[in-house]
Design a protein around this nucleic acid. Structure first.
Lengths: 329, 329
DNA sequence: ATTTAATGCGGGAACGTTTCCGGCGCCCGG
DNA sequence: CCGGGCGCCGGAAACGTTCCCGCATTAAAT
C-alpha cells in the first residue's frame, strides 16, 4: 500500500494541510513542527503522488513537444538541449511526432484540450505552422523552434538561428579567398532554411558583382554528388561550392575528386550544419547552435509558465563559421 | 470555465456514472441513452480532463523512457518505432536522458516512485543496467531495449538484435568471396555490442581455420581511417575489413584508397548499422532493425500493462545483411 | 403467477493532493 | 484587565474522474 499524505499527517500528529505546507515550502509554521513532519516523511518513505499533485494543483509538470520526426538529425540535435533545462526544473517532456500527419495532429490537440500538459514546444515543420498558429489562440504557452528566421509577422514566440547571416559570412569568407564563381548546391526549396541560405549567400556575391549558379539537391551525399557532376557535364565554370548541408558537401567533394579536381585548390567546398562528419572530412561549415536553441526554447517556455513572462518574445541564436581544410590552404 | 462530466450529465439528464460508461465504452446501457449522452458531449464540446482521468483511474497513460542520449543515432533510430505504436494506443512517452548521470537517474526514479508513468522503457547503456535491474523489483512493467543480446541470466524483459549472427553472416559472405585474412576495426570494447560483433565474426573465421586481426577504433570515420593506416604501416596483410559501424568503414575505405588500394578488388570492406551513408557510399553493411526494435519493445510493454502479459518475455529481432559494391564485384 | 436472473442506471465513496477560510492562543498596547 | 492583531494550524471543500454497490425494471424460466 502506498504511503499518502494522510498517513504522514497522522504519524506526525498534524493535519494534511500542514504536511502540504511543508512540502511546498510555504511559511506560516513552526520550525519545530516542520522538522517533525519532515522526519515523519523520511521515516515512512513518503513520496507525493504525481497524480494527486496534478489533480490538486493546476500544473501537471509535463510539457508536450511536437516534432516532425525524431529521426531527423536536426530534431535530435535540438531536443537534448531542451531536455537538459527542463530536467533541472522538474518538468517532463512528452514527444509527439507527426509521422501519421493529420492523425498525429489530432491526437496532439486532443491532449492539449485534455490539459495533459501545461505548455507546448513545437519544432517547426512546413505544413504545420498554420495549425500551430491556431493552437496559440487557446491559452497555453507555446514556443516554436524554427529552422528559419521569423518573418516578423507571425509573432509566435520562437527560437531560430541565422541561416541568412551564416550563409553570408561563409560567402564573405569565400570571397576573401578570391573565389568569384560559386556554385550553390541547394536543399529542397520548400524548406524555409534553404531559401534563407541561398538568399544570404547570393546577396553578398551579387553585391560584389558576381552571381552564383544554383543547382537543386536533396540534403543527401548522392544528390550533392549528382549536382556537381551535372554542373561539370554542363560546362559550368566554378571555383567554389556552397552546399546547404554537410552531407551534400561531402558528395560534392567526392564528385570533384573523381573528376580530377583538387579541393580546395581548384574548387573550395563548404557545407552547413557542422555535423561530426564535417570535422572528420575537414570540411568548412556553418555551425548551427542546435543545443543552445533547445535550451533557449525550454527556458522561454518555462519563463512563460511561471507567469512573469519577462523573457524575450523571440530569440535568434547565431550560427558560427568553422573554417577547415576544404576552403583553407 | 471548463466543461466537466457533471455538466454533461446534467445536460443529458443522466448521472456522471452513465457518462463515464459512455466514455469508456462499457456496455450495460441503452443505445438510446448512449447516443443522447454523446450528443450532449458534442453539443457542449466536452473533453475529458486528463488530470481527472489520471486521478480516478490507475493508469496515467504515460510511459517513461530512459535513454543514454537523444543525440546518438542508435537511440534516435529506436525511439520513432516505439512512439509509433504508443501513438495508436493513446500512450504518451516522456524522455529522460542520462546526461547528468546520477542526478538524472535520481530524478527518474523519483518520477517512478511518484507514479508519474505506468511503465518504463529503457534503452540500455553500460553502467545503468544494474540500476535498472533494481527498478524491476518495484512493480512497474519494464522493457529494455538492448544493444547486445541478453546472456539469458538477467531475465529482464528485453528486445535485442543479433549482433553475433549478423557479424557471422557477414563473415560467411566474405569467406564465400574467398577473403581469408580479415581485419576487424572494432568499436569501443566496453560496449557489449562490439564484443558480440567481434565474437560472431571471429568464430566463423576460426572455424574455417583463419584468424582475424583486430584493431580498436571509436565508431568514427577518423578512427577507422587511423586504424587502417596503422595496419598498413605495420605491414599487416589483409584482404577484407569488417568495421563495427558504417562511419569507421567509410574511414577505412578512404585510407585504403589513399594508399593506392582498390575496394573491393584489393580489399573488401563492410560496415555495420546500414545507415543512409552506407547506401550512398555503396558499402556492404549489416542492417540493424532499429525501428522494429522500438515497435517490439513498445508492444511488449503495452502487453504487460494491459495485464494479459501473454507476449514473449524477450525478443530478438534479426539483422539483415545488405551486400553492396564494397564487397560485391 | 412467482422466483430468478439479467440489464440499465444512479448514488456516493474514493483517489491524493491543494487551498480557502476560519479559529485558537499568545503577545502587546491601551 | 481587555481587545485587537498576528502567527500557526485544522477542517473541509474542491479538482474531475472511476468504480463498487445496490435498486428498479423487465424478460425469462419454473
Amino acid at each position: 500500500m502506498r504511503v499518502t499524505i494522510t498517513d504522514v499527517a497522522a504519524h506526525a500528529g498534524v493535519s494534511k494541510t500542514t504536511v502540504s505546507r511543508v512540502l511546498n515550502g510555504r511559511g506560516e509554521l513552526h520550525e519545530a513542527t516542520a522538522s517533525r513532519v519532515r522526519r515523519a516523511m523520511t521515516e515512512m518513505g513518503y513520496r507525493p503522488s504525481a497524480r494527486g499533485v496534478a489533480s490538486g494543483r493546476a500544473r501537471t509538470g509535463v510539457l508536450g513537444v511536437l516534432v516532425p520526426s525524431l529521426a531527423w538529425p536536426w530534431v535530435a540535435g535540438v531536443l537534448p538541449g531542451a531536455v537538459e533545462v527542463l530536467d533541472t526544473e522538474d518538468y517532463g517532456l512528452v514527444v509527439f511526432s507527426c509521422n501519421r500527419h493529420d492523425e498525429s495532429l489530432r491526437r496532439f490537440s486532443e491532449h492539449l484540450r485534455a490539459s495533459t500538459f501545461d505548455g507546448i514546444l513545437v519544432v517547426s515543420q512546413e505544413g504545420t505552422t498554420d495549425y500551430v498558429g491556431s493552437l496559440h489562440t487557446r491559452s497555453r504557452p507555446i514556443v516554436v523552434i524554427d529552422d528559419r528566421e521569423n518573418e516578423g509577422a507571425v509573432t509566435l514566440p520562437s527560437v531560430s538561428t541565422t541561416n541568412r547571416a551564416g550563409a553570408a559570412a561563409l560567402a564573405a569568407h569565400l570571397l576573401s579567398l578570391g573565389r568569384t564563381r560559386p556554385l550553390i548546391v541547394s536543399g529542397p526549396e520548400r524548406f524555409g532554411c534553404c531559401q534563407e541560405r541561398t538568399a544570404g549567400f547570393a546577396e553578398v556575391y551579387t553585391e560584389a558583382g558576381f552571381s552564383p549558379y544554383i543547382l537543386p539537391a536533396e540534403f543527401t551525399a548522392a544528390s550533392g554528388r549528382a549536382a556537381v557532376e551535372l554542373a561539370l557535364a554542363d560546362g559550368v565554370v566554378f571555383d567554389a561550392v556552397f552546399a546547404h548541408n554537410d552531407l551534400s558537401a561531402v558528395g560534392a567533394v567526392d564528385a570533384l575528386r573523381e573528376a580530377g579536381l583538387t579541393v580546395p585548390d581548384d574548387v573550395a567546398v563548404a557545407g552547413f550544419d557542422d555535423v561530426p562528419l564535417a570535422a572528420e572530412r575537414g570540411l568548412t561549415s556553418v555551425r548551427q547552435p542546435l543545443h543552445e536553441m533547445g535550451r533557449a526554447a525550454a527556458t522561454m517556455l518555462l519563463d512563460r509558465l511561471t507567469g512573469n513572462g519577462s523573457g524575450p518574445h523571440s530569440q535568434v541564436i547565431p550560427t558560427a563559421l568553422t573554417v577547415r581544410a576544404s576552403t583553407g590552404g
